[in-house]
């Protein structure tokens, strides 16, 4: 498998507090990478580094490098807007804009200056189809996105992220705020999406990691303890701390 990201000696600080220590990771392209670990272990911080969302946090500082397609996304002269456009993100809490369903998806195109209505119409439909929510919303596109259920809102957010044609999709605990049935649909969706996208998903749910990911990274206290193919990690972990965590002894 080709690697999409090469993370090398990544150290992250919030003010004086160190959130990540010497993380090295090769994230494969067109596969699902799961990031697991107990609360506060740095897993969210880690994925938020991959599209520079942490830039918005006051006191954030990064050392080491994150190469995406061979280029360091933190190097000078890297256009952060461009990075985020290529590397989309879906958040823990569904965060649709208080606009119509249609306008939520169209937003990403509009900010790029796309005015052509036909093109926007096409992208809206395709994105909603890719996110497996088209059938549910096709008759109510002008309605407010806030009228959707939590699970639908989250799939809408996935569709919104797909509308700007990213290459990578980062998901930060995307199913922790929604019910099990909606969770099942999103997992199914991610399995389909990995054909065309590189996916990194943070989850606190180990069964979820086991069900959908190809490779899993286990974080503990800001360190990457183990990074292995999921099947191996869940049957035969190398590190005793990993074993303790996945067997439910802590966390």
């Amino acid at each position: 498998m080709d690697a999409a990201f090469h993370v090398q000696k990544l150290n992250v600080f919030y003010g004086k507090k160190q959130a990540l220590r010497d993380v090295n990771m090769e994230i494969p392209a067109k596969a699902v990478t799961a990031v697991i670990g107990p609360s506060g272990c740095g897993k969210s911080t880690f994925v938020r580094c991959l599209n520079r969302m942490n830039d918005l946090v006051p006191g954030f500082r990064v050392e080491g490098s994150i190469l995406y397609q061979g280029k360091d996304i933190y190097s000078r002269g890297m256009d952060v807007i461009d990075v985020r456009r290529k590397i989309g993100m879906v958040f823990q809490k569904p965060n649709p804009f208080p606009k119509s369903i249609y306008e939520n998806i169209a937003y990403g195109l509009r900010i790029q200056g796309v005015k052509n209505k036909e093109k926007i119409d096409t992208v809206v439909e395709e994105s909603l189809k890719k996110a497996a929510i088209w059938e549910e919303v096709k008759d109510r596109l002008p309605q407010s996105a806030l009228s959707l259920s939590g699970g639908q809102q989250q799939r809408l957010c996935i569709a919104r992220a797909l509308a700007v044609a990213p290459e990578v999709l980062l998901l930060d605990e995307p199913t922790s705020a929604i019910d099990p049935i909606a969770t099942g649909r999103i997992e199914e969706l991610l399995r389909e999406l990995k054909e065309s996208y590189t996916i990194v998903i943070v989850t606190h749910n180990m069964q979820q990691a086991a069900r959908i990911s190809d490779i899993t990274g286990f974080f503990l206290m800001g360190e990457l303890v183990e990074f292995d193919p999921t099947s191996r990690m869940f049957t035969n972990p190398k590190d005793s701390r990993t074993e303790d965590y996945i067997t439910g002894r802590f966390g």
Binding site: F91, N95, F97, Y107, I111
Partner: peptide, 9 residues
């Protein structure tokens, strides 16, 4: 909402 906006570029 702000994060959602930033994440779309």
């Amino acid at each position: 909402l702000r994060e959602g906006g930033y994440a779309l570029g």
